[in-house]
Design a protein around this nucleic acid. Structure first.
Lengths: 207, 207
DNA sequence: AATCTTGGGTACCACTGCTATCCAACCAGG
DNA sequence: CCTGGTTGGATAGCAGTGGTACCCAAGATT
């Protein structure tokens, strides 16, 4: 298929497809001449993946490139791919270094083993600091229940990783890590809405 | 306190404080003359809240303004404030209308009661569609376990809302809805890292 | 041969979240 | 009462992001 068909079948504007090619999110097609290239079904799938990462996944173009590079690395260990996916997620950018000791204390309480410079650890510390400075620090009991819920989810996520093909496993890990985040957040909001409706009456939600 | 002291004590650059005033995120101080105003501790607290919402909370200035307006509305029902907070969260912008029937089927299975045009419902539908188009649709069993975890969290969130003061309850709901999201995401990532370490060996996380 | 289309490149655009500068009003210290 | 620094208020600019638009020459299609 040619680039125009790729654009049409994916619904992505032609100029944008070219942009993704330039940015290295989409591998170049097989050149059949100096001004012509052929794209296959795998390009279509990749394009859909790119759109999913950039849109609902909330990744920037630069972060998506890193993630896709990991997916494309042949022998990358699954654990490393997970690390890349974690590092690419939004909210890990800012270059300030929050105090990690509080967060680490919690992890010890839960018996979780994670690397010292895990981006998720920094994210947790920053999020807790934000709550504190907003005047509503998170009590330990609340965090414990959040952690228990997170533990089940994380264990399920890892347990479901296919064991047979390494490449497939890496793809699975990356896609699920990034794209299940919005699912989890949406579910939490829906659960809140349901519970809030029960407790505070069926006042219709505005907006 | 004067605006410069407000800036110093909060660590927010003076020009940025002025920007927030212009944008209506920070209420104006009590004017003592045409070129002088006095700010109180409540302004400092508000400024910290604004920074938390814009930074870790991931809200845009426009969304933060809506949320803060809800917090400032005297008699607003808690359930409505929750709706505003949900609508303000990122990933609810795009104006396409995904197919909601799949998501609604899940909700019925779980017995959740939510409004038809809930922004969270749209977000869920969109996230599920993204997974599908990325080639890894979420199986029902996975969603069920996510939903169960989300249900506990959502119930806890709502149960902890203080019942005595309405204004306090609204503040609590908004802050917790927005600022516990990054906490939950970070915890999930840490749980994944812990589980991944156990399953895939202690390969250090790169990046 | 005439008319697409493609790859490749460059320029441009809208939006966001600040940041910088300017100005006249004004207060406070000497 | 003068003088220097601060304030509110306004306007302009800036860097980054995610595209979009246009142009060109090589090559394909009819």
């Amino acid at each position: 298929m040619q680039i125009s068909e790729l654009s049409q079948r994916s619904g992505v504007p032609l100029a944008t497809v070219k942009y993704y090619l330039r940015e290295g999110l989409l591998p170049p097609g097989e050149a059949t001449s100096r001004t012509r290239a052929r794209y296959g079904e795998e390009h279509l799938a990749r394009l859909r993946l790119v759109r999913a990462l950039l849109g609902p996944g909330g990744l920037s173009v630069a972060r998506a490139r890193e993630v896709l590079a990991a997916v494309d690395t042949p022998g990358i260990p699954v654990h490393a791919a997970l690390g890349v996916a974690h590092g690419a997620l939004p909210g890990v950018g800012a270059d300030d270094a929050p105090d990690l000791t509080g967060a680490q204390t919690h992890l010890r309480r839960w018996g979780w083993q994670v690397s010292e410079e895990s981006p998720a650890l920094v994210a947790l510390a920053r999020a807790l600091a934000a709550l504190r400075s907003a005047g509503s620090p998170a009590p330990d009991a609340l965090l414990d229940r959040y952690a228990e819920a997170a533990r089940r989810i994380g264990e399920q996520d890892v347990a479901e990783v296919p064991a047979d093909s390494l490449a497939e496993a890496v793809h699975f890990v990356v896609v699920h890590t990034v794209l299940l985040e919005p699912v989890l957040l949406a579910l939490r909001r829906l659960a809140q809405e349901d519970a809030s409706c029960r407790r505070f009456g069926p006042t219709p939600v505005s907006r």
